[in-house]
Protein backbone atom coordinates (compact mmCIF):
# COMPACT_ATOMS: atom_id res chain seq x y z
CA UNK A 1 0.00 0.00 0.00
CA UNK A 2 1.51 3.39 0.95
CA UNK A 3 0.82 6.77 -0.61
CA UNK A 4 -0.74 7.29 -4.06
CA UNK A 5 -1.20 10.72 -5.60
CA UNK A 6 -3.51 11.31 -8.56
CA UNK A 7 -4.00 14.58 -10.48
CA UNK A 8 -2.89 16.64 -7.50
CA UNK A 9 -3.25 20.39 -7.99
CA UNK A 10 -2.45 22.82 -5.21
CA UNK A 11 -2.81 26.57 -5.68
CA UNK A 12 -1.05 28.89 -3.27
CA UNK A 13 -1.28 32.48 -4.41
CA UNK A 14 0.12 32.58 -7.93
CA UNK A 15 2.04 29.34 -7.51
CA UNK A 16 0.49 26.08 -8.72
CA UNK A 17 1.78 22.60 -7.96
CA UNK A 18 0.77 19.81 -10.32
CA UNK A 19 1.69 16.21 -9.51
CA UNK A 20 0.15 13.09 -11.00
CA UNK A 21 0.87 9.41 -10.59
CA UNK A 22 3.24 9.69 -7.65
CA UNK A 23 3.42 6.62 -5.48
CA UNK A 24 5.46 5.93 -2.37
CA UNK A 25 5.48 2.45 -0.88
CA UNK A 26 5.52 1.59 2.81
CA UNK A 27 8.95 2.04 4.33
CA UNK A 28 10.34 3.99 1.36
CA UNK A 29 12.80 6.78 2.05
CA UNK A 30 12.19 9.54 -0.49
CA UNK A 31 14.02 12.84 -0.80
CA UNK A 32 12.32 15.77 -2.54
CA UNK A 33 14.71 18.23 -4.12
CA UNK A 34 14.53 21.34 -6.26
CA UNK A 35 15.38 25.00 -6.27
CA UNK A 36 13.71 27.49 -3.92
CA UNK A 37 10.04 27.95 -4.74
CA UNK A 38 9.83 24.75 -6.81
CA UNK A 39 7.00 23.34 -4.67
CA UNK A 40 8.74 21.03 -2.18
CA UNK A 41 7.04 22.49 0.90
CA UNK A 42 3.69 22.73 -0.89
CA UNK A 43 3.92 19.04 -1.84
CA UNK A 44 4.64 18.04 1.76
CA UNK A 45 1.84 20.23 3.13
CA UNK A 46 -0.57 18.66 0.63
CA UNK A 47 0.58 15.13 1.51
CA UNK A 48 -0.02 16.03 5.16
CA UNK A 49 -3.51 17.27 4.29
CA UNK A 50 -2.67 20.74 5.61
CA UNK A 51 -3.56 22.78 2.52
CA UNK A 52 -6.64 22.55 0.30
CA UNK A 53 -6.00 20.60 -2.91
CA UNK A 54 -7.71 19.18 -5.96
CA UNK A 55 -7.19 15.57 -7.02
CA UNK A 56 -6.65 12.59 -4.77
CA UNK A 57 -4.09 11.64 -2.17
CA UNK A 58 -4.62 8.12 -0.87
CA UNK A 59 -2.96 6.64 2.18
CA UNK A 60 -3.36 2.86 2.25
CA UNK A 61 -6.24 3.30 -0.19
CA UNK A 62 -8.10 5.91 1.86
CA UNK A 63 -8.33 9.58 0.78
CA UNK A 64 -6.46 11.61 3.39
CA UNK A 65 -9.01 14.43 3.29
CA UNK A 66 -11.77 12.03 4.36
CA UNK A 67 -9.95 10.91 7.50
CA UNK A 68 -10.76 12.61 10.79
CA UNK A 69 -8.03 15.02 11.89
CA UNK A 70 -7.09 12.78 14.78
CA UNK A 71 -6.97 9.63 12.64
CA UNK A 72 -4.81 11.42 10.09
CA UNK A 73 -2.49 12.71 12.82
CA UNK A 74 -1.98 9.12 13.97
CA UNK A 75 -0.95 8.11 10.45
CA UNK A 76 0.91 11.13 9.06
CA UNK A 77 3.28 13.42 10.96
CA UNK A 78 5.00 16.46 9.51
CA UNK A 79 7.80 18.79 10.46
CA UNK A 80 7.13 22.11 8.74
CA UNK A 81 9.87 24.46 7.65
CA UNK A 82 9.26 27.19 10.25
CA UNK A 83 7.84 25.85 13.47
CA UNK A 84 6.14 28.60 15.44
CA UNK A 85 5.70 28.23 19.18
CA UNK A 86 4.22 31.22 20.98
CA UNK A 87 5.30 30.52 24.52
CA UNK A 88 8.37 29.16 26.20
CA UNK A 89 7.57 25.49 26.89
CA UNK A 90 10.15 23.08 28.23
CA UNK A 91 11.76 20.64 25.82
CA UNK A 92 9.96 17.75 27.54
CA UNK A 93 6.58 19.44 27.08
CA UNK A 94 7.24 20.22 23.39
CA UNK A 95 8.17 16.59 22.67
CA UNK A 96 5.20 15.38 24.75
CA UNK A 97 2.86 17.45 22.56
CA UNK A 98 3.78 15.10 19.70
CA UNK A 99 1.65 12.49 21.51
CA UNK A 100 -1.45 14.71 21.34
CA UNK A 101 -3.31 12.50 18.82
CA UNK A 102 -2.85 9.58 21.22
CA UNK A 103 -3.98 11.37 24.39
CA UNK A 104 -6.90 9.70 26.15
CA UNK A 105 -9.69 12.19 26.94
CA UNK A 106 -7.36 15.04 26.07
CA UNK A 107 -4.72 14.16 28.65
CA UNK A 108 -1.36 12.40 28.42
CA UNK A 109 -1.34 8.93 29.92
CA UNK A 110 1.53 6.99 31.48
CA UNK A 111 2.29 5.43 28.08
CA UNK A 112 2.63 8.90 26.50
CA UNK A 113 5.03 10.03 29.22
CA UNK A 114 7.07 6.83 28.87
CA UNK A 115 7.34 7.15 25.09
CA UNK A 116 8.30 10.81 25.42
CA UNK A 117 11.13 9.93 27.80
CA UNK A 118 12.34 7.24 25.37
CA UNK A 119 12.26 9.59 22.38
CA UNK A 120 14.10 12.29 24.34
CA UNK A 121 16.81 9.78 25.17
CA UNK A 122 16.86 8.48 21.57
CA UNK A 123 17.55 12.00 20.27
CA UNK A 124 20.20 12.76 22.92
CA UNK A 125 18.01 15.43 24.49
CA UNK A 126 18.06 14.15 28.06
CA UNK A 127 20.36 16.97 29.22
CA UNK A 128 18.09 19.55 27.60
CA UNK A 129 14.80 18.07 28.82
CA UNK A 130 14.10 20.80 31.40
CA UNK A 131 15.47 23.65 29.31
CA UNK A 132 13.10 26.12 27.68
CA UNK A 133 12.55 25.76 23.94
CA UNK A 134 13.40 29.38 23.13
CA UNK A 135 16.59 29.27 25.17
CA UNK A 136 18.05 26.64 22.81
CA UNK A 137 20.14 27.24 19.70
CA UNK A 138 18.48 26.92 16.29
CA UNK A 139 20.00 23.48 15.71
CA UNK A 140 18.92 22.23 19.15
CA UNK A 141 15.38 23.49 18.57
CA UNK A 142 15.29 21.65 15.25
CA UNK A 143 16.35 18.45 17.04
CA UNK A 144 13.53 18.95 19.54
CA UNK A 145 11.08 19.43 16.66
CA UNK A 146 12.34 16.24 14.99
CA UNK A 147 11.94 14.38 18.30
CA UNK A 148 8.35 15.66 18.56
CA UNK A 149 7.59 14.30 15.09
CA UNK A 150 9.10 10.91 16.02
CA UNK A 151 7.06 10.92 19.23
CA UNK A 152 3.89 11.24 17.15
CA UNK A 153 4.72 7.67 16.04
CA UNK A 154 2.91 7.93 12.70
CA UNK A 155 3.86 5.41 10.01
CA UNK A 156 4.37 8.25 7.50
CA UNK A 157 6.81 11.02 8.39
CA UNK A 158 7.18 14.17 6.30
CA UNK A 159 10.13 16.48 6.94
CA UNK A 160 10.65 19.90 5.39
CA UNK A 161 14.33 20.82 5.55
CA UNK A 162 14.76 19.04 8.87
CA UNK A 163 18.50 19.55 9.12
CA UNK A 164 18.55 23.34 8.71
CA UNK A 165 20.66 24.89 11.53
CA UNK A 166 21.93 21.45 12.60
CA UNK A 167 25.65 20.81 12.95
CA UNK A 168 27.13 17.98 10.87
CA UNK A 169 27.08 15.48 13.74
CA UNK A 170 23.39 16.06 14.47
CA UNK A 171 22.63 16.05 10.76
CA UNK A 172 24.33 12.68 10.43
CA UNK A 173 22.45 11.38 13.47
CA UNK A 174 19.17 12.45 11.87
CA UNK A 175 19.87 10.86 8.50
CA UNK A 176 21.09 7.60 10.02
CA UNK A 177 18.05 7.32 12.26
CA UNK A 178 15.75 8.05 9.36
CA UNK A 179 17.48 5.46 7.16
CA UNK A 180 17.22 2.73 9.76
CA UNK A 181 13.62 3.43 10.77
CA UNK A 182 10.73 1.37 9.46
CA UNK A 183 8.64 4.44 8.69
CA UNK A 184 7.81 5.84 5.31
CA UNK A 185 9.84 9.04 5.11
CA UNK A 186 9.47 11.88 2.62
CA UNK A 187 11.99 14.61 3.19
CA UNK A 188 12.46 17.95 1.40
CA UNK A 189 16.16 18.71 1.23
CA UNK A 190 18.71 20.99 -0.40
CA UNK A 191 21.72 18.76 0.24
CA UNK A 192 21.97 16.57 -2.88
CA UNK A 193 24.88 14.57 -1.41
CA UNK A 194 22.92 13.62 1.70
CA UNK A 195 19.91 12.76 -0.44
CA UNK A 196 21.96 10.48 -2.69
CA UNK A 197 23.70 8.85 0.27
CA UNK A 198 20.77 8.23 2.63
CA UNK A 199 17.62 8.01 0.49
CA UNK A 200 16.37 5.27 -1.86
CA UNK A 201 14.68 7.58 -4.24
CA UNK A 202 14.96 11.22 -5.25
CA UNK A 203 12.13 13.30 -6.65
CA UNK A 204 13.11 16.55 -8.35
CA UNK A 205 10.63 19.41 -8.68
CA UNK A 206 10.84 22.45 -10.92
CA UNK A 207 8.19 25.14 -11.27
CA UNK A 208 5.62 23.01 -9.47
CA UNK A 209 6.10 19.88 -11.57
CA UNK A 210 8.03 16.63 -11.13
CA UNK A 211 10.98 16.71 -13.54
CA UNK A 212 12.82 13.69 -12.18
CA UNK A 213 11.87 10.61 -10.16
CA UNK A 214 14.97 8.45 -9.92
CA UNK A 215 16.82 6.08 -7.63
CA UNK A 216 19.92 7.44 -5.88
CA UNK A 217 22.25 5.66 -8.34
CA UNK A 218 20.53 7.29 -11.32
CA UNK A 219 21.29 10.87 -10.33
CA UNK A 220 23.74 12.41 -12.80
CA UNK A 221 25.19 15.77 -13.76
CA UNK A 222 22.69 16.22 -16.60
CA UNK A 223 19.67 15.83 -14.33
CA UNK A 224 21.13 18.19 -11.74
CA UNK A 225 21.89 20.78 -14.41
CA UNK A 226 18.33 20.57 -15.75
CA UNK A 227 16.96 21.09 -12.24
CA UNK A 228 19.29 23.73 -10.82
CA UNK A 229 20.77 25.30 -13.98
CA UNK A 230 24.32 25.04 -12.62
CA UNK A 231 26.96 22.47 -13.48
CA UNK A 232 27.77 19.84 -10.83
CA UNK A 233 30.78 17.52 -10.89
CA UNK A 234 31.82 14.51 -8.84
CA UNK A 235 34.71 15.70 -6.71
CA UNK A 236 35.55 14.36 -3.30
CA UNK A 237 35.93 17.13 -0.72
CA UNK A 238 35.10 16.58 2.95
CA UNK A 239 32.23 14.18 3.32
CA UNK A 240 30.75 13.14 6.68
CA UNK A 241 28.43 10.45 5.30
Amino acid sequence: MGIRVFRLRVKRGRFVLNVDGLSVNDGDKVAVLGENGSGKSTLLLALGGLVPFEGEILLDGMPINRMSLRERAKRISILVQDVGLSFNYTVFHVVLMGRFPWFFQGRPGEEDLKKTREVIEFWNLTGLSDRFYWSLSGGERRRVDVARVFNQDAPVQLFDEPTSFMDVATEKLFFERVRTSEKTVICALHDVNAAVFYFDRLIFLKNGRVVGDVSASEVDEGLLFSVYGVAACRRKLFCFY
Binding site: L45, G48, L50, L69, R70, R72, A73, K74, I76, S77, I78, V80, D82, V83, G84, L85, S86, F87, Y89, M97, G98, F100, P101, Q152
Partner: peptide
Protein backbone atom coordinates in the same frame (compact mmCIF):
# COMPACT_ATOMS: atom_id res chain seq x y z
CA UNK B 1 0.45 27.51 20.82
CA UNK B 2 2.10 26.00 17.74
CA UNK B 3 1.76 27.49 14.26
CA UNK B 4 -1.46 26.46 12.52
CA UNK B 5 0.14 23.82 10.26
CA UNK B 6 1.81 22.06 13.18
CA UNK B 7 -1.34 22.24 15.33
CA UNK B 8 -3.43 20.83 12.47
CA UNK B 9 -0.88 18.08 11.83
CA UNK B 10 -1.22 17.07 15.49
CA UNK B 11 -4.96 16.57 14.99
CA UNK B 12 -6.27 19.86 16.42
CA UNK B 13 -9.26 21.37 14.64
Amino acid sequence: SFDDYTALSLGAD
